[in-house]
Computed example of a mutant assay.
Amino acid sequence: MYEAVSRRGIDTTADKASMPAQHARYMAGLKCALRRWPFHAILSVGGPGSALHFSVEQFQGDAMFSHVAVGTNDLKQAKTFYDAVLGAIGYGEGVLRAKGDYVYVSDTSIFIVTPPVNGQAATPANGGTVGFQCQSVEHVEAWHAAGIANGGVSVEDPPGVRQTPAGKLYLAYMRDPDGNKLCALHRMAT
């Protein structure tokens, strides 16, 4: 068995010999993506239940975070919500790991939706916001619409342009079904 992770999620198949051509291309793409990540990733290969492990050995490039995790009290609802909002901005569906959380992968980081490891109820961070970079105003709008359609609640001002010290930004804010505050951001040309 092997597992591989990329922007599309974790991919598991019986053995490399039975890997179809599409998986071979997928694995080649994974190798390229891993070279761009700001950390060194180690793939665990083993029997059933093997998991993906990351080792942060050295930082390169300009990515600040290796991962962001938010807690949930309803993993099924959270997956539906995040599949929709992250799908609206170009990411694949979350993949269930053996430890019982969902992982969404980009070229530079990982977003994780998980029940709290301490067994307590998940609560949103007071003053915390998770921001997602978007390629266009249309992506911000699609992200927001997908979230509202899947149990999110719009907060703050409606999606739109904000003038900030960092320049013009197109922003949308909402809370996920567990109350975590999220933002979609597109940096506009000046």
Rank of each mutant, 00 (worst) to 15 (best):
W37R: 15
Q135E: 13
G90H: 02
E3S: 14
V137F: 00
P177T: 02
G167Q: 05
F65D: 11
K79L: 15
N126E: 14
G147Q: 01
S50M: 10
T164M: 03
P165L: 00
G92F: 10
H186A: 01
N150E: 04
S154K: 03
G160K: 03
A166P: 01
P38V: 14
K16M: 10
G61C: 10
S18E: 12
R35W: 11
S106C: 07
T190E: 12
V113E: 05
S6F: 05
G92C: 05
P165E: 00
P48G: 08
V155T: 13
A24C: 06
T13C: 07
P38C: 13
Q120E: 11
S66Q: 14
F39G: 13
D83C: 06
M174W: 01
S50N: 14
P20M: 12
F65H: 14
S50A: 12
H139Y: 07
R7H: 08
Y91N: 04
A51L: 10
G90V: 05
Q163D: 09
T80I: 11
I110H: 03
V105I: 09
Y2W: 12
A146D: 02
Q22R: 13
N126K: 10
V70E: 07
A121Y: 00
R7S: 10
W37P: 00
A98S: 13
G119W: 04
V137D: 03
A51R: 14
H53Q: 13
D15C: 12
R8C: 02
R97T: 14
E141W: 02
I10K: 08
Q77M: 11
F59C: 07
T123I: 12
D74N: 15
A146K: 03
T190H: 11
D157P: 01
G128M: 09
Y2L: 10
L86P: 01
C183E: 11
F132Q: 01
D11I: 11
E57T: 15
F111T: 05
Y173L: 01
Q163F: 07
F111I: 08
K31R: 14
V161M: 09
H23L: 15
I112R: 07
L43T: 04
A51K: 13
